[in-house]
Amino acid sequence: MNSFAFTKWMLWLVLFFLIAPFSIVFITAFSDDNSLLFPPSSYSVRWLLSVMQTEIFVSSLITSLWLGFGATAIALVFGVPAAYALQRYPVPETEWIRTLLTSPLIIPGLVIGVALLKQFVLLGGNSVNLALLAGHAALVLPYAVRVVGASLANLPRDIEDAAFSLGASRAQVFWRVVLPNVRGGLAAATVLAFINSFNHVPVSLFLTGPGITTLPIRMLLHMESSYDPSIAALSMLVILFSMVFVFVTERVLGLSRYM
């Protein structure tokens, strides 16, 4: 069927367009040149080693990891009970709350960042760091609500009622029956929330400074000032990290089912 040949070619083209640029990052990461050339004139791992030993990269990586885990934890602690309530106890306000809880997705990150800066600066002290955490948590909360919600929607209500009538308290129903059965959704939400926070730039742009800087911001700053393969090396490491994260989740839990 010739229309199938056409659609198939289109798919390969799209996949090439989506994936191929990353091979350039990978090749450049092994460059031995002092400035960014493609293809590199010779190869080594010195840029990879160099970025791993550069204090500002390492410290901003640690910042990003903490930020990602902190934001994810907050998003889950607030988002999972909310997702449960939206699914199980529909009240007249449900649709409003659902819109509210997913609204950070439609507000430009830069706007969130500036707005938080304006408010938190008034508080003084370390409050900008808090604003950074709060902003990231708000940003990824929708993932927790939506993904866990989708997973809860697949859990028949009868199962909870069965546990309840066998003598379980509401808390026991939640811990012993609901949570184990939405594990996949929880894991997917965790991955999505963490990766999105870890890679996010706009919210952080105004909320990071000399004291505390996330890795993507550090990479942006570095790119503005120098034109060397260290960003390729860093990008490769970050990509590898993300790929392993996603691959493992897709393999173990079937992430795509929750997207």
């Binding site: 870890f198 890679n199 990479m219 790929m243």
Partner: peptide, 19 residues
């Protein structure tokens, strides 16, 4: 295939623009 499509979404926009 869906994994391959999701993959770029999981990669830092900084790295993607750098490429």
């Amino acid at each position: 295939l869906i994994g391959l499509i999701i993959l770029p979404l999981m990669i830092s926009p900084v790295a993607r623009s750098f490429a």
